[in-house]
Amino acid sequence: MFAIVVFPGSNCDHDCYHAVKHVIGRPARFLWHKETVIDKDIKCVVLPGGFSHGDYLRAGALARFSPIIKAVTDFAKDGGFVVGICNGFQILLESGLLPGAMLRNRALKFICKDVFVRAANVKKTPFTATYTEGRVIRLPIAHAEGNYYADAGTIDELKTHNQIIFNYCDKDGNISDEANPNGALLNIAGISNKQGNVLGMMPHPERASEEILGNSDGRALFQSIAQHIEGA
């Protein structure tokens, strides 16, 4: 069972639900942010995109105080799988489940477009296990604060433990400044925790899961974790 957390202001909750339930055909339910318990049958928690609590303050800064975050933290400690997409990634950073922080995009504007990202360390997380190492995939981004930042020590740690999972790149896989849409350090688009059970990413795989949307590169992420859960 997948659970999609609904914060006040979440707006990709239904999109993630649709991707899990109707695109890859796995059971899914919503979790209200005021809930305090994650039921035993839930194996993967999705923190969806949106503007939790309006994000008038730093994105995700208020959502981390929601009761559900305590439960998600315990769930992750026990090895449960968590993916935060866009605002979900921001919330994971704010709540300390992942290291680093988000700055405003360097152009100081909201950006919604398709970008290319290169999958690295794909075996680190069951979310990306079925991607081939170094594969270039196309995914949409839609955010104003996706400029990933961390201090040098943290970046070293991320590298040492193979935690950098997605980097912005061009269509041929070159990780360049031109291919960096928001100014993120090292073109970081997604990272995992040390254990590999928590993934945060700015691009939206749920928006790239069906042929009719012109792009299904993101579907493998949901399939990959679903297969892992079923195999476990």
Binding site: N11, H14, D15, F110, K113, S209, E210
Partner: peptide, 14 residues
């Protein structure tokens, strides 16, 4: 202009 608008949320924009 439209890059500043989220034109894909709801995953219905074909």
């Amino acid at each position: 202009v439209w890059q500043q608008y989220d034109h894909m949320v709801r995953t219905d924009t074909i």
